[in-house]
């Protein structure tokens, strides 16, 4: 096909593009994969039985605010990196600040607790499964995030993959917080954060192969 033919074809196919098209694609992709992840959590792990009483406690809301803020920063990063020349430096800084903040909270709680309570604050009762569960819950989200990027134009694929992974991990940890009954801040600071970073790493590695266009 000659370039002139191609131009004629593309011109013939032209349709108006709404200004919000990218945002809409991000919303559709993350919305539907959030539904998938939440459904998976509900049938596989189940909601925490004490949800109603937990909602009256600070740790529940600390977990909620932490994971929700990470999820928002991650989804925003995903939207930004979907554009050519997109940069997620601000988002990474924001996520870094949130991680530092929860780290400080965890450290303060450790400092105020008696030494014999430290081990439980760090490992809770679900240390062996917490991060793994979050990573599993992040997989549908990662697929959704990759689908979003596949129709857009990220030019730095490793960074784009990392953004997709971090967003997926953060949203998955938000979903997981409705199942998990842990309430120690050091636990959240370590294992939840790891649950966000591991999908970020998976995304970064997969990005340069999966996201090519």
């Amino acid at each position: 096909m000659t370039t002139d033919d191609l131009i004629a074809r593309l011109t013939g196919e032209l349709k108006p593009v709404p200004r919000t098209a990218v945002l809409r694609r991000v919303a559709i992709g993350l919305g539907s994969s959030l539904a998938a992840s939440a459904t998976l959590m509900y049938f596989w792990l189940g909601m925490r039985p004490d949800l109603m009483t937990a909602m009256e406690t600070t740790p529940f809301w600390a977990k909620f605010v932490y994971t929700l803020s990470l999820a928002i920063a991650g989804a925003w990063a995903l939207k930004r990196i979907a554009h050519p020349l997109g940069s997620i430096r601000i988002n990474l800084a924001l996520m870094g600040a949130l991680i530092v903040a929860i780290g400080i909270l965890g450290f303060m709680q450790l400092a105020m607790a008696p030494p014999e309570a430290h081990y439980y604050l760090l490992t809770g009762h679900s240390v062996s499964i917490c991060t793994l569960n979050i990573v599993v819950l992040s997989l549908p989200l990662l697929a959704g995030a990759f689908w979003i990027l596949s129709g857009l134009a990220p030019t730095r694929l490793t960074v784009a993959g990392a953004a997709a992974g971090l967003a997926s991990g953060a949203i998955a940890s938000l979903v997981y917080s409705f199942h998990c009954t842990e309430s120690g801040m050091p636990f959240i600071a370590i294992w939840y954060t790891l649950g966000v970073l591991v999908p970020g790493l998976i995304g970064a590695i997969a990005g340069r192969y999966v996201l090519r266009w």
Partner: peptide, 16 residues
């Protein structure tokens, strides 16, 4: 050239 024009076409929504 053609690939770039195709990419422009299919991904034109990403122009801010």
């Amino acid at each position: 050239v053609q690939e770039t024009l195709m990419a422009l076409h299919t991904r034109r929504a990403t122009y801010e």
